[in-house]
Amino acid sequence: MVSTTHFLVLGAILFTIGTVGVIIRRNVIIMFMCVELMLNAVNLTFLAFARHFNQIDAQIFVFFVMTVAAAEAAVGLALIVQLARRTNSVDIDQADTMKW
């Protein structure tokens, strides 16, 4: 039997990997994927709690999160394409025209 705690721990691990990834990686696409990983960790946490409470509310929340993530991906990828067109790379360090 897989308990709620297992799911929560997995969620926490995924969330941490995502957070660290956003901070240390310089490739915008990978940073974006790490954000998506964080959102999925959140979804997993929600589902674990929903199963624990035997409720449906949180499952609906997960649908909203997925929909919003899709909308965000559309905007985010468009911005990344724009960066790539301009600098021929997807390295976030290319975007450094403004400093302090």
């Binding site: 969330f15 956003v22 954000v35 964080m38 959102l39 959140v42 965000e72 960066l83 975007a95």
Partner: peptide, 21 residues
């Protein structure tokens, strides 16, 4: 402007993940 939007996007999405968690 692109740089501004990209930075806003990455950090905005990042913070949303925290909020959701």
């Amino acid at each position: 402007s692109t740089e501004s939007a990209l930075k806003y996007f990455i950090l905005g999405a990042f913070s949303t993940a925290f909020l959701l968690y």
